[in-house]
Amino acid sequence: METERTSPQPAGKSPRQPLSRRRLLGGIGAAAALGATGVIPLANHVSAEPEVKASASTGPKRQWAMVIDLRKCEGCTTIDKAPQCVEACNAEHFVPPGQEWLQVFEVEGPGGHPHFLPRLCMQCENAPCTKVCPVGATYHNEEGIVLINHDRCIGCRMCMAACPYGVRRFNWGEPENPPGAALANYSPEYPLPHRKGTVEKCMLCAHRAKDGKIPACASGCPMFAISLADMTEDVATNGKDVFKFSRFLADNSAYRLKEDLGTKPRVWYIPGHGQEYGHHVDDNLIPKEPRSWQEQGMTLDKLEEKHKAEEHPQTEGAK
């Protein structure tokens, strides 16, 4: 049972909790202290190297990926709610109203058979967006997630033109931030506060993955349709079951969106093989409009509580 696996963290670094109370208070304290001296606290500067050098760290690096089981997704029409994944995402990231980093589309499959398709950032390995960024503001981290450094982004929107999936969003005006966000410890893995004139997108909840949690959309999905996977350990979980990632893909005819473009996305979709999924062509199922974080009444405090509740996950698996 003892599965010894070295921490995905570089040695000596504790898992980050971008919004813990301690950090927030620390931030306020620091701001107060700095207010006296008139210095503005500098946001975290991460290395925005577009190319990740192979590092000789001790353990295998996580390589995050995602599987979305289309057989399970009903666009939350059956529970008469807006897509819960989108709402969870909006609440987790305080996604500026008007944007959706994750969208649920109704798609026609082969033969005009309709089904729902949640579309988030594909975290492409051969990402067109990171290639075209003139300042290296969007880049892959060592775990294969495409991040945006909002301190560096110049807002040229070249990446938005390059993205073949249309996942990127832009803060055209001053985005609405939750109260207190100004003191949040910005990092590309959890970009808060949102900044005017910069590009935003899903970053696979990199901050949650670090803490060993599945992304907000996956934990928000009532059907357990969205799974987080680690390609290094070849394991995936939808928050309920743990399964072998490669086996699950191969067993279920997994595919990726626009695979022929060669972008090598890290998000796989499961249409199954012959199982019935989606809905009848005559069923006019329209997903409801997801609520923004404001409409959900989300605050930083509530988010922190939510994170705390997730700290103690059930360890009972499929057994």
Partner: peptide, 15 residues
Amino acid sequence: INQSFAGRSGLVEIG
């Protein structure tokens, strides 16, 4: 095998 991942653990079918 017994494997735990992202706060979940259980028997993972490997073959």
